[in-house]
Write a protein that binds this DNA or RNA. Structure first.
Length: 483
RNA sequence: GGCGGCGUACCCAAGUGGCAAGGGAGCAGUCUGCAAAACUGCCAUCCAGCGGUUCGAAUCCGCUCGCCGCCUCCA
């Protein structure tokens, strides 16, 4: 079996993926800080790594995948204050919302979903050992990591300490020995969530929690660490520093994978622009499947632009697939239920999925799936014009096999046409009931039989104005709701 | 100022040394009472520009122009 190549942010190159233990993959991806609804950027990260994780499994790896919830943080505390409630309540509320959004997008549950607050013991332990080893120091109840204690600080982001400091954008904190030193442990103010520690009551800093959760659940060296590109500095840089200092083992993560950003109509999503797109708002306008297809239609490291146009295109692409399925089922009953023959398409599967082995190129795989869709339609067209169905069933079955295998890791094209159209119909406020539509279709077909095409066209027009589109097929008239 | 990325047709987007995937739009045709869908054909002699390396480059190197990200919480 061909090996998988991954782009490693640490080296800036594509490398052959060699896990620490053959056949096994340990993987950690930074999850959300749960102080608000998650946005389309979280969706991209989650969907990208979901596909990656599923592909490893598809390829037979034994995967242990963790994605955390940061449930103790300044923003959560602030939010709790404005809502007049506790951090715990805020965190729980948005963890639930995040989980719902992920489920809607078909993101599988990671094997482990640790919360920062559940690893406080480990955080204190790691912090303590960093002090003991001289990498961290205590200052009035705070504990800081000393970035100058390890020579290789900056190796992930390609920065060096002196240049960072000349940037002078780092706030100066008198308690720190060096402006770049970061908090491992923060003394808590009254009313804030806090835990007893050797340095008094306090709470963990941001970076240490991920290190602690990784060390606690996955070990000293993991295979893959993922997250958004923006986390490279300082978050992941700091994670590497503190983890490698604490364990004395290098590397902390063998491969670092970072996904690109989502822009909205060519602009960066930001609070100040007020263009943060929540996942649930996106789901109001588009099907989850179209959103997922859109996210996977570009390489995970490239920036992508979320626009009304690009989503409409994704929606059309999804519809093209289900229309083809619907047609296949109409012309070749039971084709969708039949067991496909995987051994018949071994070579095609290999060719179609090969791009995944080169840094998870989902975009190219999707392109290959559309070739299969064209192939299905072509076979059915030829059979119809020749009046000879011989061989078509196998042709359809083989293409379906390829698409369905891909859907195991892409997470799209995995529904029946009925489910798809039902979902689309339910998204539109229907002025007409299904029964009413069926009645009008029957009336129109009567008119067509009488060759009363004026009446027939009037009914088509009437339905169209209400968002219902008709299609006359050899098997009768079908209708769908315009998305 | 420092670090990094990107620039492929009307739009989106693969391609990472051997004669430019795929989706959308458009045009023409087949089919259809009409329409839609589907299918067929057309749609980048060229991959921001200029040099260089090479038998051969969109793909490697250099320079120029343009866009973007990070350096501060951030997926």
């Amino acid at each position: 079996m061909a090996s998988i190549r991954v782009f490693n942010s640490l080296t800036g190159e594509r490398e052959e993926f060699k896990p620490k233990e053959p056949g096994k993959v340990s993987m950690y991806v930074c999850g959300p800080t749960v102080y608000d609804l998650s946005h389309i950027g979280h969706a991209r990260s989650a969907v990208s790594f979901d596909a990656i994780q599923k592909y490893f499994r598809y390829r037979g790896y034994d995967v242990r995948y963790a994605r955390n919830y940061t449930d103790v943080d300044d923003k959560i505390i602030k939010r709790a204050a404005t809502e007049g409630t506790s951090s715990e309540v805020v965190a729980e509320k948005y963890i639930k919302a995040f989980d719902e959004d992920m489920a809607a997008l078909g993101v599988g549950l990671p094997d482990l979903r640790p919360k920062a607050t559940e690893s406080i013991g480990k955080i204190i332990e790691v912090t303590g050992s960093l002090i003991k080893k001289g990498f961290a120091y205590e200052m009035g109840g705070d504990v800081y990591y000393s970035v100058r204690k390890k020579a290789d600080y900056g190796k992930l982001s390609g920065k060096n300490i002196d240049e960072l400091e000349s940037g002078a954008r780092v706030e100066v904190d008198e308690r720190k020995k060096d402006p770049l030193d970061f908090a491992l442990w923060k003394a808590s103010k009254p009313g804030e969530p806090s835990w007893e520690s050797p340095w008094g009551k306090g709470r963990p800093g941001w970076h240490i929690e991920c290190s602690a959760m990784v060390l606690e659940w996955l070990g000293d060296t993991i295979d893959i660490h993922g997250g958004g590109k923006d986390l490279i500095f300082p978050h992941h840089e700091n994670e590497i520093a503190q983890s490698e200092a604490a364990t004395g083992k290098t590397p902390y993560a063998r491969y670092w994978l970072h996904n690109g950003f989502v822009n909205i109509e060519k602009e960066k999503m930001s609070k100040s622009l007020g263009n943060i797109l929540n996942i649930r708002d996106a789901l109001k306008d588009h099907t989850a499947e179209a959103i997922r297809l859109f996210l996977l239609s570009s390489h995970y490291r490239s920036p992508i632009d979320y626009t009304a146009e690009s989503l409409r295109e994704a929606e059309s692409a999804v519809e093209r697939y289900y229309k083809t399925l619907q047609r296949a089922a109409a012309e070749y009953p039971t084709i969708l239920e039949a067991q496909p023959c995987l051994s018949c398409v071994e070579d095609r599967l290999h060719d179609a999925f090969k791009p995944m082995d080169d840094d998870f190129n989902t975009a190219e795989v999707i392109g290959n799936l559309f070739k299969e869709i064209t192939r299905m339609n072509k076979a059915m067209d030829e059979a119809r014009s020749k009046g000879e169905k011989k061989g078509v069933w196998e042709e359809l079955s083989n293409s379906l096999a390829v698409i369905r295998e891909a859907s195991k890791f892409l997470g799209v094209f995995n529904r029946t046409p009925e489910e798809y159209y039902k979902d689309r119909s339910s998204r539109v406020e229907m002025e007409l009931s299904a029964q009413e539509i069926e009645r009008l279709i029957a009336e129109r077909n009567e008119a067509r039989k009488r060759k009363d095409f004026a009446r027939a066209d009037a009914i088509r027009k009437e339905l169209s104005e209400k968002g219902v589109e008709l299609e006359d097929t050899p098997k009768g008239t079908t209708w769908s709701v315009r998305g």
